[in-house]
Design a protein around this nucleic acid. Structure first.
Lengths: 235, 235
DNA sequence: GTTACGCTGTGGTCAGACCACAGGAGGAGA
DNA sequence: TCTCCTCCTGTGGTCTGACCACAGCGTAAC
């Protein structure tokens, strides 16, 4: 009886996922049915489902019909974001480590994208153009910035890296926003960031992995240093 | 009232963490007290606590006294492992992406460790010696292997990367173990891995970042290819 | 002084009761 | 026959109350 009741439920569902009895789009049995099948109370079932929901594995909906109930989805970024955000809040993850990890992942994305046989930077170019709009507030600009980096990661095609980057970004979001307010001349910074973005994407399009890696590294490190989020010299 | 009751609880605790009212080692109020304070039912409080527990932010204990109740801890690896394992099970994370991400992180760890001013590879050497023991089963050997890689990551000092590597490792653990049984001559493979490990640590000790990066990359990629876990050519 | 008992508060669990909601079935009307 | 409306059903969301096992602490008995 080492297992607590909710763990029984979690393991049962995990096994179903692992062995293919459950997959994306499938509906889980109702909470009452699961409880009866597994011999636990409904509240224990709910605790397990809550965990799965926060981890981005299911979504729940009230009502009846095919789209109600608990349905298996796969949105890893949500769970990763929640996890990283909470750990940063609890100071299990120092901010500097988060930033450094982001650097590692971004470097790898840029390099792998630049040296890939096929690459599609159409999304990136679209976002680049959107960032040229006048009168963008810092928050809007930074949101587009996040989209750009995420779009590049998605082009690289690694789902794990995409969610990790999304999660890392979410975890430091409030700090980044706060940092942007410390910048004296935001318009000048925005222009600088725009130019750096263009240079990065150009290096990727040209297939120059080393340049892409260096440029994105300096781009991110430069911004964090400018906002004082990290002491100089991480990595 | 978009918030569901358990989200209210989660946000309340997250805010307490963020603003320093809660920190590692502190005790949360009892479930009944939290429920009364926030005006929700105890079951909703429990759902929120369950999430925090799985994410590695709290541990709970029955009984009375100072060590009972819900206590803030910080064990990010546990939560990361659970998240990655579940996502892999649900096929949100292709195995190849997990492996490739591990490569990216290990490369960065090796390079940063080799170029660090101070580095302590004593733990790594201890594990290396332990791996020389005769008659190790594949499972035991691989457990030590995991410890070695984790020890290196810890020496590099980035908590985020440590948990991510631990999580990635956990997520593919069963596959790695299954893969080891497909190897014809396990003893020969173990010898090869031992030699590669020694070479990696030697490069790190020598401060040769490029060599360390290359060697660890080939080491991991080679093993995964040998066990057929990934098609050749990732990264 | 030492030991043993019981009280208290904790999480863990279950059962039952509502509620709001969404969809489908079936009847009433055109 | 077709359309619209109503009611019923099953879903998750929540709360309440009730137990249980457990660990600590005070207190009474020795």
């Amino acid at each position: 009886m080492a297992d607590r009741a909710w763990q029984t439920v979690l393991e049962h569902i995990e096994r179903d996922l692992l062995e293919g009895r459950l997959g994306a789009g499938d509906r889980l049995p109702s909470e009452r049915e699961l409880a009866a099948d597994l011999g636990v109370g409904r509240s224990s079932v709910r605790e397990a489902l809550r965990v799965l929901e926060v981890m981005g594995l299911i979504r729940t909906a009230t009502g009846s019909g095919p789209s109600s109930g608990a349905i298996v989805i796969v949105t890893p970024s949500g769970g990763m974001s929640a996890l990283l955000r909470l750990q940063v809040a609890a100071q299990g993850f120092p901010l500097a480590d988060v930033v450094q990890t982001r650097l590692v992942l971004e470097d790898a994305v840029a390099a792998s994208l630049a040296s890939a046989d096929m690459r599609d930077t159409a999304d990136a170019h679209r976002i680049l153009d959107a960032m040229d709009a006048d009168g963008l507030a810092a928050g809007e600009f930074l949101a587009l910035d996040a989209q750009l980096h995420l779009a590049l990661a998605e082009s690289a095609g690694n789902a794990v890296i995409v969610s990790m980057m999304a999660g890392l970004r979410t975890a430091v979001e409030s700090y980044v926003l706060a940092g942007s307010e410390l910048i004296d001349d935001w318009d000048a910074m925005a222009d600088r960031l725009r130019a750096e973005h263009r240079a990065i994407v150009a290096a990727i399009d040209a297939g120059d992995a080393d340049a892409a890696r260096t440029r994105i590294h300096d781009h991110i490190a430069g911004y964090y240093t400018a906002t004082g989020l990290t002491p100089a010299g991480t990595d």
